[in-house]
Design a protein around this nucleic acid. Structure first.
Length: 586
RNA sequence: GCGGGUGUAGCUCAGUGGUAGAGCGUCACGUUGCCAACGUGAAUGUCGUCGGUUCGAAUCCGAUCACCCGCUCCA
């Protein structure tokens, strides 16, 4: 821990949540009915804060094309927006893998509290060779037992493990055997199986199969399967032939993370549809439309913001993991050869962008994923990075704000196959040169770099970053929002409610409101003491307060108070709009 | 989904079987001369919800819901 660390770690999430409620940033959804798990509403200040963040993204990413930063090709970055439906044809989610992935039955180990995909459970089955039996015969017998055993006979695997393929599984099992002999083979006619002969640590010869545990067996006798979290080396002396364990595994259960609904009034299983679990697919399915109907050409990006829905097992940590949340996603399409460069470009620029909104210092990090945590589609890619923020509830760890992934051509390829659509892009700037000196062009499926940010998480990070406690101030608790995202941009006060000050102040208020009302609220307040009004604005995170005092009436000047320092300076009332405009960056 | 904790006014909390409370905040009126000033007054609660025990429940019991923490999960 460095010297600066305490300033961040002393922030209490409870205090932040309490301020959010008190000042109208965030409320529990349906609170008067006792709330609803995993859903949050934004109040007046929160709604504007969220809109400001969304607008900043839209402006900087889409309209200004990465704020004018040139891409790795030395050209301006081209991005166009779309706004696609929350409900799409259910086949979209079959193609994307969400229906399968989100429907995968899961098994819990009640002992170790771990959960894993049932189809990732591999078992090592051992059998004693019978008199004169060849390896093939023995293995065939074993496979038959595994698949056709009557369930009243205990015959589970000797060991199990969680793995994505049988080689990986076999690797995990090796340690349990004394010696593996050479004849390791794929079992013919079995989708996922490896057979071998071996010698156990007791010195017994045996035939073995590394086999995906059949779903029917898991359902019938989950506790006969040894837990995959038992280390193989602890199960040193394996018993051959009939055996069963006494584990605490549950039977496979489906945890569908997609919200299901029905189209039309009849609500039969034929009418099932899903609320989108990510906005990305709406972009991919419109890739061809955008290419065909606009003049964009690869490399270019398509962006959208919008709500997504995931039926999270455990919504947690305020708005951080909600069941309904808003994403800000870009799918950037480029030639496969350029993917690496664009990946680096986006990763670095997105980090800069978040830093530019006041998320700075050691609370924000860029973390490159290790290869073992990459999503299936990203294994072949240039990489995946997270931009992560140190929230009070994750400290000293970090929580993801945005992920930048090289998704390769996975999504377009999936949609090409499932929709039987031609999504290849014809790039007339590539290919060999023809006789006339023009490139012949090249057909290819573009690769995708996906910077996918969480809007609600961004808002939460900004709230946490802005929350400041300084006991030396009259208002010790205040929100240090970057002026660009602050929900209230400025406030205008008469110093006291008499001598024509309110009228003068209202005049200024109305001018500023006309000029800056599209960016956020401009407040007017004449109630109670000036100190209390400053304090109220500090809590709402208003960066500037303009006060009309006695001098304003005679020489036309006002004072401006800076939220962060409390310092004041005088300026002509006529110059206020220009001053504020400059501070707000417009 | 599992284990632990919490739930009383907008916020922070006191109240452990006998009339629902405090501070702050909010609102009104007065006062005001630059940092939560002061005076007076006011509003705000099915004590998370439902059920049970009891003459009587915020308080005891059960269930349920929500939030927090630790697991788990997290394309």
């Amino acid at each position: 821990m460095t010297d600066e660390a305490p300033a961040t770690t002393t922030k209490s999430m409870d205090d932040i949540m309490s301020l959010c409620k008190r000042r109208g940033f965030v409320y529990p959804a349906s609170e008067i009915y006792g709330g609803i798990n995993g859903f949050w509403d934004y109040g007046p200040l929160g709604a504007q804060l969220k809109k400001n963040l969304r607008d900043a993204w839209w402006t900087d990413v889409v309209m200004r094309g990465c704020n004018g930063k040139l891409g790795p090709d030395g050209k301006p970055v081209e991005i166009v927006p779309v706004d696609t439906c929350i409900i799409q044809n259910p086949k979209v989610w079959e193609a994307s893998g969400h229906v399968a992935g989100f429907n995968d039955p899961m098994v819990d180990d009640k002992e170790t509290k771990q959960r894993f995909r049932a189809d990732h459970l591999f078992g090592m089955y051992l059998v004693r060779p019978e008199e004169g039996e060849s390896v093939d015969q023995g293995v065939a017998r074993l496979i038959k037992i595994i698949n056709e055993q009557p369930f009243e006979l205990p015959y589970g695997p000797n060991l199990s493990c969680v793995a994505s393929n049988e080689e990986e599984a076999f690797g995990a099992f090796r340690a349990a055997m004394h010696r593996i002999k050479q004849d390791i083979t794929r079992v013919p006619d079995a989708a996922v199986a490896t057979s071998f002969t071996a010698e156990t640590r007791k010195g017994e010869e045996c035939f073995g199969v590394c086999y995906q545990v059949p779903m029917s067996f898991m359902k019938a006798h989950p506790t006969w399967i040894p837990s995959p979290f038992n280390k193989p080396d602890k199960a040193a002396a394996l018993e051959l032939d009939n055996r069963k364990s006494d584990s605490q595994l549950t039977e496979p259960r489906a945890f569908n993370l997609m919200f299901k609904t029905y189209i039309g009034a009849t609500a039969t299983e034929d009418d099932v549809a899903y609320l989108r679990p990510e906005t990305a697919q709406g972009i991919f399915v419109n890739f061809k439309n955008v290419v065909d109907t606009t003049r964009v050409g690869v490399p270019f990006g398509i962006a959208q913001t919008g709500k997504s829905f995931r039926n999270e097992v455990t919504p947690r940590n305020f708005t951080f993991r909600s069941r309904e949340f808003e994403q800000m996603e870009i799918e950037f399409f480029c030639h496969p050869d350029d993917a690496k460069d664009w990946y680096v470009f986006w990763r670095d620029w997105r980090m800069e962008w978040w830093q530019g909104l006041g998320l700075k210092g050691e609370n924000l990090i860029l973390r490159e994923h290790d290869s073992d945590e990459l999503a299936h589609y990203a294994k072949e890619g240039a990489g995946t990075s997270d931009i992560e923020y140190r929230f009070p509830f994750t400290a000293p760890g970090f929580g993801e704000l945005e992920g930048i992934a090289h998704r390769t051509d996975f999504d377009l390829k999936q949609h090409e196959e499932h929709a039987r659509a031609k999504l290849k892009y014809f790039d007339s700037t590539r290919g060999e040169l023809a006789k006339n000196g023009q490139p012949k062009g090249e057909h290819y499926l573009p690769h995708v770099i996906e910077p996918s940010g969480g809007l609600d998480r961004g808002v939460l990070a900004i709230l946490c970053e802005a929350y400041t406690v300084d006991e030396s101030r009259p208002s010790p608790e205040f929100m240090k929002f970057h002026p660009r995202v602050a929900p209230i941009k400025a406030a205008v006060f008469p110093l006291v409610k008499k001598d024509g000050m309110p009228e003068k102040a209202q005049e200024l208020h109305s001018e500023l409101r006309q000029k800056f009302g599209h960016l956020g609220a401009i407040e007017y307040d004449e109630k109670q003491s000036i100190g209390k009004r400053y304090a109220r604005m500090d809590e709402a995170g208003t960066p500037y307060c303009f006060t009309i005092d006695g001098d304003s009436l005679t020489d036309g000047t006002v004072t401006v108070r800076d939220r962060d320092t409390g310092e004041q300076q005088r300026m002509p009332m006529a110059g206020v709009a220009a001053f504020l405009g400059e501070k707000l960056g417009v």
